[in-house]
Write a protein that binds this DNA or RNA. Structure first.
Ligand SMILES: Nc1ncnc2c1ncn2[C@@H]1O[C@H](COP(=O)(O)O)[C@@H](O)[C@H]1O
Ligand SMILES: Nc1ncnc2c1ncn2[C@@H]1O[C@H](COP(=O)(O)O)[C@@H](O)[C@H]1O
Ligand SMILES: [Zn+2]
Ligand SMILES: [Zn+2]
Lengths: 295, 295
DNA sequence: TATTCCGATAGTGAC
DNA sequence: GTCACTATCGGAATGAG
């Protein structure tokens, strides 16, 4: 039961990444590909009591950033800080950035891995995603960048949970010569972590700056606190980037009318219906998480 | 601010009434009429952490009583213990009893003084009050006994709050010769505490044994905890004993349909509407209580 | 369908 | 509309050298 210091599921500490300037190469910046640890680890989860060293979801940090920008970031404008000045954030928060995009770790992750892709173009950033994605050129660049971030998040899941995975271990065993394998036959592919990721936008975002969610399907997080959190990622309220542009009569254009957020709670993995019993769903999800890792 | 040991608003301790057997005379038993203190004082209020000396609203006491009776008192039958064996309770709980009635202090009082009258006749005791009161003879005896308890409770209010009351002090001043008063003119009557008491039954009782509430209108109590508590004494859900027998089409026969218990919270004294804001109502009631005592 | 705090509402179990 | 416990649901504020 005791986890070791090098447990890949552990979050690294702030100190361990201190001084690491965000790398300019958007493809790999913030990811130490050959090492066990990388920037895809999170700060201490929010709302747990803040320590002296780590003030948690930092109103202080945002406030100080704001001073430099002569601009006020209200509650729902919090993501603007990242696109305005990505360099001011530690690598534990900003995964990478370029002139056009910033990728970050969600400050209130709803799964064990939860990243956001933030386009930096001011105009579409202020639009509703359904409107912004009407522009085919913009949609294309977002899709391409989302694919990149998706690969990174997939690799992070592999790094964290690969050792639990039956498929990954099979591949490893063949590679290490520990398992019989027909000469010339293709290697076992290992697990396709990317395929299971949730990638999309909320039908009615609360944060004003355009952002695309890229997250593990596990829904394991202390920040997952109520029904709307869960349903926003496990109903049509989450609109896959692949689904754009939306038809004019797509019901997801009226998420309130469709009532996605008030649906019964249903396990994403086995379909069990939990009604309103959020806490029981959470306990069930913890069990599903263990099984899921083993696939 | 510091209260003295003899503050008439204080509850007396269990020790002070220890060994006091309930007096057989239902008219005055449990009330020490000539003294400052009497049995109209309450045990430590429930749900505050129980001490070793006073276990609070005593599941222990009821459980041990049950053993002697070879009978199980479930949650909603808790009042049966008093009519079955009133002598087994301390005078701080049982105000008085006779062959036909037991008067007790409500274990979860919803006002500073809150008594219950329990008829001991088994048949009507198990009926809904609306049905039991269809019997004119029974209703007459209940009315007479309720009038007695009402007088006792009125006297208790006078004992507790009389020193704050302008009308009581006026009378006292005349009696003491401290105030000019025309020769032969009737004395100032003092305050009619009885008149303000709430006396009645709940349109849909939760406790199975027939009981009549007799309580101060102040609604000041730690046991007053939610909207239904308050509305059950401050809407037509409380049916005055004087209103019986009820007409066949009286809307109070269908309290759920009438929605009394889900009404907005309205101050009993000034009529201010607090909507759903129970806590604010409670704070307001504390202020009203101070003013009310001064009347 | 931002978080957080606080409080009102709702379901359960009570031997 | 018993109590007591837990959990769910609901509104309001969120900034201010
Ligand atoms: N200051 C912040 N930094 C990073 N992520 C945030 C911040 N504030 C909110 N979020 C996340 O932004 C997302 C906004 O969700 P939505 O607007 O519903 O698509 C949520 O997942 C939040 O956890
Ligand atoms: N064990 C008990 N001893 C004395 N009073 C009780 C007991 N249990 C409940 N009560 C009171 O009985 C009353 C029942 O209210 P109702 O049935 O709505 O008329 C409430 O005022 C309770 O506080
Ligand atoms: Zn499941
Ligand atoms: Zn008032």
């Amino acid at each position: 039961m005791a986890s070791t210091d090098s447990d890949p599921e552990d979050a690294i500490t702030k100190e361990e990444i201190a001084g690491t300037a965000p790398a300019p190469d958007p493809g790999t910046a913030g990811i130490s590909q050959g090492t066990k640890r990388n920037a895809f680890t999170e700060l201490m989860s929010p709302k747990t009591k803040t320590t002296a060293k780590d003030p948690g979801p930092e109103p202080k940090t945002l406030a100080s950033t704001r001073g430099a920008l002569t601009r006020s970031f209200k509650e729902r404008d919090g993501l603007g800080a990242y696109t305005h000045d990505p360099a001011s954030f530690p690598a534990s928060r900003v995964i990478y950035y370029s002139d056009d995009f910033v990728a970050i770790h969600d400050l209130y992750p709803k799964s064990t891995v939860h990243a956001l892709l933030l386009p930096r173009s001011p105009a579409p950033s202020r639009q509703h995603p359904f409107d912004a994605f009407e522009d085919p050129a913009f949609l294309a660049t977002v899709r391409a960048e989302t694919a990149k971030l998706r690969r990174l998040v997939g690799k992070e899941l592999q790094r964290r949970y690969g050792r639990h995975s039956a498929r990954e271990r099979e591949r490893e065993a063949v590679l290490d010569g520990e398992m019989e394998w027909e000469e010339g036959r293709a290697l076992p592919p290992g697990r396709d972590w990317e395929r299971e990721l949730l990638v999309g936008v909320h039908a009615h975002p609360s944060m004003n700056d355009l952002h695309i969610h890229v997250l593990s399907p596990d829904m394991i997080s202390d920040c997952m606190r109520h029904r709307k959190h869960y349903n926003s990622f496990n109903t049509p309220f989450l609109v896959d980037v692949a689904d754009f542009p939306l038809a004019a009569d797509d019901p997801r254009r009226h998420p309130g009318r469709a009532g996605y957020n008030s649906r019964d709670l249903v396990c994403w993995r086995c379909g069990e219906n939990f009604g309103n019993r959020f806490k029981q769903l959470k306990e069930h999800l913890a069990e599903e998480f263990e099984e899921w890792k083993k696939e």
